[in-house]
Computed example of a mutant assay.
Amino acid sequence: MIRWLALGLLGFFAIAALPLRAQDTTATDEAIRPAGEATLEDFLWIARPLVVFADNPADPRYVQQMQLITERLDALVDRDVVVLTDTDPSARSPIRRELRPRGFMFVLLAKDGTVIIRKPAPWDVREISRSIDKQPLRQQEVRDRRDTLRQPEPEQPTQ
């Protein structure tokens, strides 16, 4: 009897966790996507594109960079980063034509479209986050968020 109860509870919790996994996948799908036909102008003042280039999806530097990103994706999402991947040089995507990578490279752009980082080797998300946090626009976003958290809610009139 105890075995059946334990099995039933295990099944219940497994089913209850499914929507959470689906939401996590959706958040990952939105934060990491192929560069495709997107242009850098699509992200102006909306997000900070982090473009990861490689000549092949099996490139060890590309694989390492994507592992580093997925391990701490939440830190990038908090900073309005969208990760774009481009592993097909023959496709000549608009972003690849504009940034002209050679082999593996990642490029982080600010919301205004300026290049913050351009590196030929994988970087940890902590280092990427620090580079973002030094930017004046990011510092303003943090101040604005802090100010909205401090403001008291207006009092509702009692009737």
Results as ranks from 00 to 15, higher is better:
residue 67 Q to V: 09
residue 87 T to Y: 07
residue 101 P to W: 12
residue 123 W to K: 03
residue 109 L to K: 13
residue 25 T to D: 08
residue 132 I to Y: 07
residue 27 A to K: 07
residue 41 E to F: 06
residue 77 V to K: 11
residue 147 D to M: 14
residue 41 E to C: 00
residue 47 A to R: 15
residue 140 Q to H: 11
residue 20 L to N: 01
residue 145 R to D: 05
residue 5 L to C: 04
residue 119 K to S: 15
residue 136 P to A: 15
residue 100 R to E: 10
residue 107 V to A: 13
residue 124 D to A: 12
residue 82 V to E: 11
residue 49 P to W: 09
residue 101 P to F: 02
residue 90 S to C: 12
residue 9 L to A: 11
residue 89 P to C: 04
residue 104 F to C: 06
residue 140 Q to Y: 09
residue 86 D to G: 09
residue 149 L to T: 03
residue 34 P to D: 00
residue 149 L to P: 05
residue 154 P to D: 04
residue 146 R to L: 14
residue 36 G to D: 09
residue 22 A to Q: 14
residue 63 V to Q: 12
residue 121 A to F: 14
residue 5 L to K: 10
residue 61 R to F: 01
residue 97 R to Q: 11
residue 108 L to N: 14
residue 111 K to G: 15
residue 113 G to T: 00
residue 151 Q to P: 00
residue 56 N to P: 06
residue 38 A to Y: 01
residue 55 D to L: 02
residue 116 I to N: 08
residue 20 L to K: 01
residue 95 I to G: 00
residue 10 L to W: 13
residue 114 T to Y: 07
residue 138 R to D: 15
residue 22 A to K: 01
residue 57 P to S: 08
residue 96 R to I: 05
residue 156 Q to R: 11
residue 7 L to E: 06
residue 54 A to L: 03
residue 46 I to G: 04
residue 96 R to W: 04
residue 131 S to C: 01
residue 104 F to K: 06
residue 10 L to H: 04
residue 38 A to K: 06
residue 17 A to I: 07
residue 138 R to E: 15
residue 75 A to M: 06
residue 97 R to G: 00
residue 53 F to E: 08
residue 138 R to P: 08
residue 72 R to I: 06
residue 127 E to N: 08
residue 149 L to W: 10
residue 61 R to L: 01
residue 12 F to C: 15
residue 80 D to W: 05
residue 152 P to E: 07
residue 123 W to H: 11
residue 118 R to W: 11
residue 112 D to W: 05
residue 18 L to W: 02
residue 104 F to G: 03
residue 63 V to L: 09
residue 32 I to E: 03
residue 141 E to H: 07
residue 65 Q to V: 12
residue 156 Q to D: 03
residue 71 E to N: 10
residue 19 P to R: 10
residue 141 E to K: 02
residue 7 L to Q: 05
residue 1 M to Q: 12
residue 63 V to Y: 06
residue 19 P to M: 05
residue 78 D to T: 00
residue 154 P to M: 02
residue 150 R to A: 15
residue 141 E to Q: 11
residue 1 M to V: 06
residue 67 Q to D: 09
residue 148 T to H: 01
residue 106 F to V: 14
residue 90 S to Q: 15
residue 127 E to R: 08
residue 43 F to W: 12
residue 9 L to F: 13
residue 91 A to L: 09
residue 86 D to Y: 00
residue 106 F to H: 15
residue 52 V to P: 02
residue 59 D to R: 05
residue 31 A to G: 03
residue 63 V to R: 12
residue 13 F to W: 13
